[in-house]
Design a protein around this nucleic acid. Structure first.
Length: 774
DNA sequence: CAGTGAGCGAGCTTCCGCTTGACTT
């Protein structure tokens, strides 16, 4: 038995470190937090100084028991969780839970997984920093109080199973407000003038494109200008050449990796994290949940060597990047390849692509600046004040551009500049063509998952480990949806001057096309409005930044943690109580008009199961009728006619010879046909409002035939039916809605009734997802 | 996997931040 037990957070890390330390050391991982607040009630004793009620997380019990056993047999236990707030709390929970003794416990930390860093850490152990632990307790308790008091309020006032929290509610707010900006956006247009000029250099003629330094609001102004230009001459008044340089972006953090993988590879943030995890576990990259842009000395020298040997020493420039992110804790290195010499790796396509992205970004970050030459040419017009400006760019030294250039988000994009031929002041270019194109101002951009992460990080909200889960939570709660939306065609005016002829034409362009963008739902808007009205302070974009300052004070011992919580909780809880009393149920109800044939009122609102239409009032003699809105419909935009159309289902199509009714309706999973108490999904090509009895029977027949192919055997035994079915993972036995695996060595095709009964008697039914709850 | 929406009320839902499970219907 080793004399020393080292506990780190991640198993992959444990494996690496074990190799660095001698056989006197056993290295184990605790897999993150081992204890958390109890989920029964608030998990916080509010009456007695907000004392947290911790329990060992059920899924960690096994690990804790093993660590307990190992700790008892060790002379020294080294708590090597990350050096940040959460890591300190993990160390403290380990200390408490494993029943460690102070003399035999050392707290150590390292920011990079290298042999020297770890040996250095072992030489400088310290005690657990209780102030830092208290800062974490304050963070944890605050989040619990906010989440577990706001959410139940929403259940009472809006609908069940909703949620709210310090992070997710702000994420939803950003999306709701962006959508409002877009709805209120008024597009204006102006005319942009470009001129294509013929220039002679030596005996070669080339064309350069220049843009007028003025835009015209009105078509008439643009026309008048162009008309004037028919008689004009042009002269190059100035050629200005300036050197410029471009520098590489810093190495990846979690947030920038998610952004760049989204822009360059089209990955969702969850996908990026899943693949990065695989790369980490197989030892290809360093830890993927980090807010640091720092690279270890070893990484820098590896990068140096790689760049020098691939591109030459003049391409090397070792740089130290500093983090500017709010609240960064920098417990890890930046995300980088473990071995800079591995340009690529084995593995599937997306793993390879993500790895290469990380490799390029890391290498480029240690390469020389690119040196450019920017040229601006000013062309004067003989009969007008305005000037045409042509811009060009030449790369004199490519530097890091040889490897990698960071992509830009939509809002940052502007036109690329090409090269210009050599030009001289006094040259007289000849106009080949001039265009005035009507340009519209661009509406604000909707968030993608990745640009939302970027925004959250700017606001200091959320952590590398929570960006991806937060994005999926707000989608799971159906506050926002990620969707593609087709664009609309828009006409614009184009005026062209060519061969002394002015022509005017109307062209059309596609605008507003959206791919994988985040849109708020009706429920998202309603919940946001409710929270904004009653809990403005929690939804404030600066709320997190403000409480983080308090946490910092606690960490430095300048504030008492539960005193800070008490000051927050008093007014917060009062606001909860007040809202419970004063606010009625909120449904976002909107009147659409009246149903023509009955004269009853038609409403749209949020009900228990989401957005719905209601015909008739609840206090009238007849019961109102209800129908859910379809996917893609919204309270905001639905018309009276669309609302009434929702009541055309269910439709009875008719009956078959056996007197069984065929009914078409729509459910949670789309339109379906019901016949003999069985369900048949309607193909997308069929409209449930139009489908005929004949067509429905055809669909039923097709499905039945498909099922027959699926069924290998069918045995009837009294009332129970035993089937041998072909599933996605091979053949299995189905009986009384339970499924049974067929043992290896038996051929499904030759199974008899007796065989099946034996299998059923001897095997546990497979767990089905639908009934894992007690 | 598929009918819901008034009322009655039991019993359920929920936070953020650390980390990887599991074995497929």
């Amino acid at each position: 038995m080793a004399k020393n037990l080292v506990i780190v957070e991640s198993p992959a890390k444990a494996k690496t470190i074990e190799g660095f330390l001698g056989n006197e050391f056993t290295v184990k991982s605790c897999m993150g937090h081992i204890a958390d607040l109890s989920k029964k009630g608030l998990g916080v004793d509010i009456q007695n100084g907000f004392i947290p009620q911790y329990i060992i997380s059920p899924e960690k019990k096994k690990i804790v028991n093993e660590l307990k056993r190992l700790a008892q047999d060790s002379e020294i236990v080294w708590l090597a969780s990350d050096e940040d707030r959460e890591g300190e709390a993990i160390a403290w929970h380990l200390f408490e839970t494993l029943g460690l003794e102070e003399q035999k416990t050392h707290r150590i930390a390292f920011h990079e997984i290298t042999k020297s860093a770890i040996q250095e850490a072992i030489k400088t152990p310290r005690q657990i920093d209780q102030n830092l632990v208290n800062a974490q307790q304050a963070r944890r308790v605050l989040d619990r109080l906010v989440g577990f008091e706001l959410s139940p309020l929403l259940w009472k006032k809006i609908k069940p199973a909703l949620s709210a929290g310090r992070v997710q509610s702000v994420a939803v707010r950003l999306i709701v407000e962006r959508e409002e900006e877009i709805r209120n956006f008024q597009s204006t247009s102006s005319f942009r003038i470009t001129g294509d000029f013929k220039v002679k250099t030596g005996n070669k003629t080339s064309i350069i494109r220049a843009e007028l330094n003025k835009r015209f609001q009105l078509k008439e102004e643009a026309l008048a200008f162009i008309d004037k230009c028919r008689k004009a001459g042009y002269v190059i008044e100035e050629v200005e050449t300036k050197p410029a340089k471009k520098s590489p972006a810093p190495p990846f953090t979690t947030s920038t990796l998610q952004q760049e993988a989204s822009r360059k590879l089209g990955f969702s943030v969850a996908n990026t994290m899943r693949i990065a995890q695989e790369l980490y576990e197989s030892g290809k990259i360093t830890y993927m949940r980090t807010d640091s842009v720092n690279l270890s000395g070893m990484a820098l020298s590896m990068a140096h060597k790689e760049i020098a040997s691939s591109f030459g020493e003049n391409y090397v420039k070792i740089r130290k990047f500093t983090t500017r992110t709010k609240g960064a804790q920098e417990a890890h290195e930046a995300i980088r390849p473990t071995f800079a010499g591995d340009k690529t790796i084995e593995g599937d396509r997306s793993r390879k692509r993500l790895y290469e992205l990380i490799w390029k970004r890391t290498i480029a970050s240690q390469m020389a600046d690119a040196e450019l030459e920017k040229t601006t040419v000013t062309i004067g017009i003989s009969n007008a004040e305005e000037k045409f400006i042509a811009k060009g760019e030449v790369i004199r030294f490519d530097g890091f551009l040889k490897v990698y250039l960071e992509s830009k988000d939509e809002e940052e994009q502007n036109g690329e500049e090409g090269t210009l031929p050599p030009l001289n002041t006094g040259d007289q270019p000849v106009l080949a063509e001039m265009n005035a194109q009507q340009k519209f101002t661009q509406q604000p951009f909707r968030y993608t998952e990745a640009t939302l992460v970027k925004k959250l990080e700017e606001l200091g909200i959320g952590r590398p480990s929570t960006y991806a889960p937060t994005i999926s939570t707000i989608q799971k709660r159906e506050y926002v949806v990620k969707e593609d939306r087709p664009g609309v065609s828009r006409d614009y005016t184009l005026i062209t001057l060519k061969d002394d002829q002015i022509t005017e034409s109307i062209k059309s362009e596609n605008t507003g096309y959206e791919k994988a963008k985040l849109f708020p739902t009706d429920v998202g808007v309603l919940v946001n409005n409710f929270l904004m009205r009653h809990f403005t302070n929690i939804l404030d974009y600066n709320f997190t930044a403000n409480v983080e300052e308090d946490f910092d004070d606690i960490a430095e011992g300048k504030k008492v943690w539960n005193e800070m919580i008490r000051q927050f909780y008093g007014p917060f809880h009062e606001q909860i109580e007040k809202t419970l009393e004063t606010s009625g149920k909120v449904s976002g109800e909107k009147s659409l008009g009246k149903e023509p044939k009955s004269g009853n009122n038609v409403y749209v609102k949020i009900g228990r199961y989401g957005p719905m239409v209601q015909i008739g009032d609840t206090d009238s003699d007849t019961k109102p009728r209800f129908a859910s809105l379809k996917k893609g419909q919204s309270i905001e935009t639905i018309s009276l006619q669309e609302a009434l159309d929702l009541f055309k289902l269910p439709r009875t199509l008719g009956s078959t010879g056996e007197g069984e009714e065929v009914v078409v309706s729509t459910g949670r999973f789309g339109p379906y046909i019901r016949y003999q108490s069985a369900f048949y999904s309607l193909p997308k090509t069929d409209d449930p409002l139009e489908v005929t009895l004949a067509r429905a029977l055809e669909i039923i027949h097709e499905k039945q035939q498909l099922d027959n192919q699926k069924t290998l055997h069918e045995f009837k035994e009294g009332t129970t039916i035993i089937r041998v079915l072909n599933g996605r993972y091979g053949a299995y036995i189905s009986c009384n809605k339970e499924n049974y695996k067929i043992p290896k060595g038996k051929d499904a095709k030759t199974l008899t009734l007796k065989d099946c009964q034996e299998i059923i008697a001897n095997t546990e039914p497979s767990k089905s997802k639908s009934k894992k709850k007690k």
